Amino acid sequence: IDVCTHNVVVVQYRDEGYLVLDGLLSPEECDALRDRMSEITEQMDVPEHCRTQFSTDHDEQLKKQGNADYFITSGDKIRFFFEKGVFDDKGEFIVPKEHSLNKIGHALHAYEPLFKAVTHSPKVQCIYIYIIMVFSITFFGTVGGAVLIHGEVVHRSAANTSDASRHVYTFHIMESQNTIWSPENWLQPTEELPFPSLYT
């Protein structure tokens, strides 16, 4: 579906709160993103105190990390968050690095040129022009498809229990004109990295 020429997808998105777009990225674009992520993963040097498993639960973060700062202050950085059971009691990997990660966040769109190019691509800009709402967009690296999720739709990502990695690239877009970003949101712009415009 070409979202720039089919009003039906706009109606579907507004009615259902999400939209699946097949083949938004080409196989070549997916391969390039996957190859770059493999390089980042292979080169990651994670300090011992950061070798903690990822959790979106604040109390669990406190229990595992002593505080939630590593996650809370990651909005303008590229940091690594790990699945459960990937380290031994000394903090050493017990699985291959490429299978250890839950996510890498949260500033790939700012510091990694390939991810920045996708985030600010004409394809994404076109979607935003026609959807005109706050949404999250997740690209699935295996087929180049994307899922748009409205910002008011409650959603979650369950643990990946399969043998295959779940290659996705997720970012969030919001309307900035005549809006105020909630100071209660954990993700805040910083002097080092203000929220970038989609059209830059």
Rank of each mutant, 00 (worst) to 15 (best):
V3S: 01
N7C: 03
V10N: 07
V11N: 02
Q12D: 12
D15Q: 08
D15W: 04
Y18S: 07
Y18N: 10
L25H: 04
L25D: 03
S26P: 06
E29M: 10
C30G: 01
C30Y: 01
D31L: 12
M37S: 09
M37I: 10
Q43I: 01
M44D: 13
D45A: 12
D45M: 05
V46W: 02
P47L: 08
H49T: 13
H58T: 12
H58D: 11
H58F: 13
E60V: 03
E60M: 08
L62W: 04
K64M: 05
G66H: 00
Y70E: 05
G75K: 08
D76H: 14
K77L: 06
K77N: 07
F80H: 01
K84R: 12
D89K: 14
K90T: 06
K97I: 05
K97W: 04
K97R: 08
S100Q: 00
S100K: 10
S100V: 02
N102S: 13
G105I: 00
G105A: 11
A110D: 11
P113A: 05
S121T: 02
V124P: 03
V124Y: 06
Y128L: 08
Y128D: 11
I129Q: 15
I132N: 14
F135R: 07
S136T: 13
S136K: 14
I137C: 04
I137E: 03
I137S: 01
F139G: 04
F139T: 08
G141C: 10
T142Y: 12
T142G: 13
T142N: 15
V143K: 15
V143M: 13
G145P: 00
V154F: 09
R156K: 15
R156H: 13
S157M: 10
A158D: 13
N160Y: 01
N160E: 00
D163N: 11
D163K: 14
R166F: 07
H172V: 12
E175Q: 14
T179Y: 02
I180E: 13
W181D: 03
P183M: 03
E184N: 14
Q188F: 03
E191N: 15
E192Y: 06
F195N: 03
L198W: 00
Y199R: 09
